[in-house]
C-alpha cells in the first residue's frame, strides 16, 4: 500500500509517497519562492527523520521539476549534507537530457558517498 502526501506552495507541488523499500518525494512545477526554506525545510526534515527511523531509502525525484531558483538549492543541499552525516540513504533523480537539470544536479555529486549511500542519478 502506498501512502501519499501532497504539499503545494505557489507554483511548486511536492508529493511524498512511502513504499515498501523507499520514501519518494516528487517535485512538480516551478520553485521560485523568495524563501523556499520556509516551505521546504519542515517537509525535508520530516522526510529525513522518516527515512532514518524506517531504514528506507529516500528518493528525491526532480525529473518533473520545470525550474528552481538558486534559493531552492540551499534546502536541498542541506538535506544532502544532513543525510551524509547521518546513517540515511538518499538518491537524487534528475533528467540528464535537460541541460539545466544536468548542470544543476550533476554539480551536487560532491555530496555523494563512496558507498552510494548518497547518490545522484541522471536519467532520461
Amino acid at each position: 500500500m502506498t501512502d501519499t502526501q501532497s504539499f503545494t506552495h505557489d507554483s511548486l507541488r511536492v508529493e511524498i509517497a512511502e513504499e515498501a523499500q523507499s520514501i519518494t518525494m516528487r517535485w512538480f512545477g516551478k520553485s521560485t519562492m523568495r524563501k523556499p526554506g520556509d516551505f521546504l525545510a519542515p517537509i525535508l526534515a520530516d522526510l529525513l527523520k522518516r527515512g532514518n527511523e524506517s531504514g528506507k531509502r529516500i528518493v528525491m525525484d526532480f525529473r518533473t521539476l520545470q525550474y528552481m531558483n538558486s534559493s531552492t538549492i540551499t534546502p536541498v543541499i542541506r538535506l544532502l549534507e544532513q543525510a551524509r552525516r547521518s546513517a540515511g540513504r538518499l538518491s537524487v533523480l534528475y533528467r540528464q537530457d535537460l541541460k539545466w537539470q544536468h548542470l544543476s544536479f550533476s554539480a551536487l555529486k560532491i555530496f555523494e558517498t563512496p558507498d552510494a549511500r548518497i547518490e545522484l542519478k541522471g536519467a532520461e
Binding site: 534559493s71 538549492i73 554539480a107
Partner: peptide, 24 residues
C-alpha cells in the same frame, strides 16, 4: 555549494545565484 551547505538555511546572502549565472 560546499559553503552554503554549512550555512544557516535562512541566510539569503549566499551568492549562489551569481555563481550559478557564471556556471550554468
Amino acid at each position: 555549494l560546499r559553503e552554503v551547505s554549512r550555512r544557516p538555511l535562512q541566510d539569503e546572502t549566499s551568492g549562489l545565484g551569481l555563481a550559478r549565472i557564471a556556471y550554468e
